[in-house]
Simulated assay, not measured.
Amino acid sequence: MNTLFDTAPGFDQPIAVLKHCHDRIRKQLATMSKLLDHLPNHGADKDAQQAAQSVLNYFVKAAPLHHEDEEINLLPELQMTAKDEDAALLAGLLPKILSQHEDMAAQWLQLEKQLSAIATASAASLSASEVLDFQALYSEHMQIEETQIAPMAKRLFSEAQMAALGAAMKTRRGITA
């Protein structure tokens, strides 16, 4: 079926939902790059304000839920399920993933201030080095999750575990239907 717009997977496919979140993160990271190019020539015009607000909306609302999905549900469930080489790999990756979440949150605080000022047209600057650092950290993080964590969960989780993960993600977002 070919639709005119990209539809999100349902919570009955929680790993696909997490991947969809990564795609949305990539889109917001690209918007920040476009802002870096746009601001010197156009300042905090309407387009810049809307772009900054879009990035703010995503990283203030959706990104923290995504990290909670991983920290509260996905990773602990994997820890309980993984055995042998999977458990060893997970034990090595987990501290890095959690540390990256902390680093992303700290980096976001700096970018959030700048983007908020752009969104209200009270400033027109965005630190290129901070954007690039944030993009690099998120890119490495998503690559680890997509090549190591997601395939492990798909392989190891039972239908019941997948259903429980999806239900927790849905509840976290206040979705009742």
Rank of each mutant, 00 (worst) to 15 (best):
L56Q: 06
A82T: 03
L90W: 02
R172G: 09
F134K: 03
L56F: 07
K46R: 09
N2P: 02
A91N: 08
S116V: 04
H141R: 07
A128I: 06
A119P: 08
S129F: 06
A167M: 11
E68H: 14
L75A: 06
M32R: 05
K154T: 02
L93G: 00
T147G: 00
L90R: 01
T120E: 14
K61C: 12
M142D: 00
A16W: 05
M32N: 03
L56Y: 09
D86F: 09
S127D: 15
E145Q: 07
A82L: 04
A150I: 06
T7C: 10
P14V: 06
M162C: 13
D133N: 12
T81L: 08
L111K: 08
K46N: 07
H101L: 00
I25T: 09
E159N: 15
L78Y: 07
C21H: 14
Y58E: 02
P9R: 12
I97F: 00
G10A: 14
A87T: 03
Q110H: 13
A128F: 01
P9I: 09
I97N: 01
D103C: 00
V17F: 11
L93E: 03
A177E: 12
W108Y: 12
F59D: 08
L35S: 03
A123R: 07
M1I: 03
L90F: 05
A121W: 04
L111I: 02
Q53A: 15
L137P: 04
E130N: 11
G174C: 06
P151K: 02
L78G: 07
E146S: 06
A128N: 11
S158M: 08
E130P: 00
P14H: 08
Q53G: 14
K96Y: 05
S122Y: 01
P151S: 05
D12A: 15
S99A: 10
A106R: 11
E145T: 03
E77I: 04
L89Q: 10
P76W: 11
A8C: 10
Y58W: 10
L111S: 02
T31E: 11
Y138H: 14
L65R: 12
N73T: 11
F5G: 06
E102K: 10
A48S: 03
L29R: 02
S122T: 15
E70V: 05
M169K: 13
S127H: 08
A63Y: 14
P64F: 06
I97E: 01
A136F: 03
K96G: 00
A91W: 00
Q53P: 01
V60T: 14
D6G: 08
T81S: 12
P76F: 10
K113I: 05
A105F: 00
K46Q: 10
Q148A: 10
F157V: 09
D12T: 15
S129D: 14
K83H: 11
M152A: 02
I149M: 07
Q49Y: 01
K113G: 04
A121N: 02
M80I: 04
T7P: 03
I118E: 05
M104R: 03
R173S: 10
H141V: 04
Q28W: 01
N41E: 15
S129Y: 07
P40W: 11
F11E: 11
L126A: 04
R155T: 05
S122M: 11
T3M: 11
A136W: 00
F5D: 09
Q100H: 13
L18N: 06
P151V: 01
M104T: 08
I149C: 02
R26T: 01
L39K: 05
E70L: 05
E159I: 11
A106V: 04
F5N: 09
M1H: 06
F5H: 14
A106S: 12
A87Q: 10
G166P: 13
